Computed example of a mutant assay.
Amino acid sequence: MTAQTLRICMLNADVPVPAVANTRAPTYGRIFHHLLLSAATTLKITPSITITSTDFDVTRNEYPTSLSEFDAIVISGSASSAYDDLPWIRKLTTWVRSAYACHPRVKIFGSCFGHQLVCHALLGAYGVKVEKDGKGWELGVKEITLHDRFRKTFGKGLEGQKEVVDALRLQFVHHDHVVIPEMDALPASWMTVGNTWHCAVQGVYEGGRVFTLQGHFEFDRFVNSETIKFFFPTWQPKVLEETLEMIDADDDSVVAATMVLEFFLNDVEQKTATYAVAGGLLTPPLRE
């Protein structure tokens, strides 16, 4: 990546609901793009950074011809599940594995479904699963307690050793979750980001390579409210009202967007496991 340009490959795994698409942006990629531009202004980066991005609709099997043209990948949320046996999800899973194995300089970020898909693709060999959450839906603005190891490790890559906040409040709308059987089952370079009372795995992180969040920093009150109203038109009025009240709260989307941009722009010294690609699929390394 050059000093002045960040080139992002936006993988759209769904489209915004009509009320959002018609008033905000036609794709999640455009929403992410605007938020990251805003974060760049907040950070006052010197020299100034130019952010370019290209949308790809992976549900229609759209992908870049080469990742050499990009510095980072963003995988959006979706109404689908990472474990759905659909051709486009199988292809995306294989593509993410190949991107991780063959393009170590390209960083990967996933939001909600994107978080779950990355865990499914890259950590499934270690017993990590994506499944329906027995507690049901996690909705509205919730507080994520960030784990100490993540805060300390992520902070090492930031200019001036900035201190990472200890909690984030983000918008949520999900009923699937990532399950890690045991923390020591993960490769040594990987860690969890944080947890809420509802969901134990609120993201994963591998320094300089991968960062995911279960919550939606790209959602605000309007986006999440319209999403809920679109997908759940038959909810009882009282239930819908209570959910919309949980959505109508302040969040830390600006802080989260800034963290994602810092992840894209900063390199962290880390020991990277080497993956071999065989027949288009990853063969995971032996654990130490």
Rank of each mutant, 00 (worst) to 15 (best):
M1S: 08
N12A: 02
V15D: 09
V17I: 09
V17D: 04
A19R: 14
A21V: 00
T23Q: 12
G29A: 04
R30D: 13
I31W: 09
H34A: 14
L36N: 04
I45N: 03
S48V: 02
I49L: 13
T50Q: 09
I51H: 03
S53E: 05
S53T: 14
F56I: 12
D57W: 00
V58A: 09
T59F: 06
N61P: 02
E62W: 00
Y63E: 06
S66Q: 06
S68Y: 13
F70G: 07
V74N: 00
I75Q: 08
S78A: 06
Y83W: 09
R90S: 08
K91C: 10
K91S: 15
R97I: 09
Y100G: 00
A101W: 07
F109M: 13
G110F: 01
S111H: 10
C112E: 01
F113Y: 11
L117Y: 08
L117V: 13
V118M: 03
C119L: 08
H120N: 13
A121S: 15
G124E: 10
A125I: 14
G127H: 10
G127L: 10
V128P: 03
K129I: 09
V130L: 08
K132W: 00
L139M: 14
G140R: 07
K142R: 12
E143H: 13
T145D: 14
R149M: 10
R151Q: 11
K152D: 12
T153Y: 06
F154D: 01
G157D: 02
G160V: 01
V164L: 03
V164E: 02
V165G: 12
D166M: 02
R169V: 02
R169I: 01
L170R: 12
L170V: 12
L170I: 14
H175R: 15
H177V: 11
H177W: 02
I180S: 03
P181Y: 00
M183A: 13
A185I: 02
A185T: 09
S189Q: 13
T192H: 11
T196H: 07
W197C: 09
W197K: 15
C199K: 15
V201Y: 01
Y205M: 08
Y205R: 02
G207L: 06
G208Y: 04
R209H: 02
R209M: 01
V210S: 02
F217Y: 13
F217R: 06
D220E: 07
R221K: 15
F222K: 05
T227N: 03
I228T: 07
K229V: 03
F230M: 11
P233K: 08
W235N: 11
W235V: 01
P237D: 03
L240A: 03
L240R: 10
T243V: 11
L244E: 02
M246W: 07
M246Q: 12
I247M: 04
D250H: 06
D251Y: 06
D251W: 08
A256E: 00
L261A: 07
F263D: 01
F264Y: 06
L265W: 04
L265H: 04
N266E: 10
D267H: 11
E269Q: 10
Q270V: 15
A273P: 06
T274H: 11
P285H: 07
P285A: 09
L286T: 15
R287D: 11
